[in-house]
Design a protein around this nucleic acid. Sequence first.
DNA 1: GCCTGTTTTCCTGCTT
DNA 2: GAAGCAGGAAAACAGG
Length: 277
Amino acid sequence: MTTAEDLRPAQAGGTGERRVMLDSVTHSTFLPNASFCDPLMSWTDLFSNEEYYPAFEHQTACDAYWTSVHPEYWTKRHVWDWIQFCCDQYKLDINCISFCHFNVSGLQLCSMTQEEFVEAGGVCGEYLYFILQNIRSQGCSFLNDVEESKVAIKDYAEPSCLKTSGVKSQGCHSHGHSRTSLQSSHLWEFVRDLLLSPEENCGILEWEDREQGIFRVVKSEALAKMWGQRKKNDRMTYEKLSRALRYYYKTGILERVDRRLVYKFGRNAHGWQEDKL
DNA sequence: GCCTGTTTTCCTGCTT
DNA sequence: GAAGCAGGAAAACAGG
């Protein structure tokens, strides 16, 4: 069992092996005041609990709604999304972060001091504090470039609560897009981003029911051509593209709509909602 | 090199 | 008849 005591040398040590395993550190390690909320509630509970955190798995910063909103205007849900993203992105151990301390709105989050972040999450909390300060000072564009983010954070503090291999480029690499950058690596993300980018859309796709996530392919051949260009495949056709779309029915990313050229985002698709909350 | 997930390609049958 | 949809099968491809 790793304890906070065990972590100190790693935090203090500035050279060589600054990686530290926090996998076995429970949230209670940094949770002296946990009694005022459900002591059994953990991040794992939160993210697997439909009531608290409905159907929002696999989210990345780039497609999360909170990236387009200043931290001061975040809701509790945005705060949770952000923390989950940071943990995924920077290999922080979410179990060492106190859920109770971060069950706050963005405004409250922004008013928290560095000491309060440390109290809430130890070295991970401190790291979150630096990331938040970067977002507040540089805006959300900070999150769209992982490499820049790493450099910026490094300027603030040396990461010392990383799980295994320090800051590791991922997430936005594979899903490398801003909400409307059309750099999505997956077809459904490409379609989603096209729907969210009127300037790129050119009437190729249009919403039928924005709230329900129902959209229509208006120019099927143009869509296929665009996707083909994206994948450097000039043999792409709408028939092939639609086959790929139909595979998403299995995974819940798309849902069947019994109308021609009409599709609907499913429970496992994210980032298409105007305002999820 | 293997495994896994995603996408592409081709196909048949059906519906609009 | 053309276009689109449904879904099986296999292959290609990329990332881990």
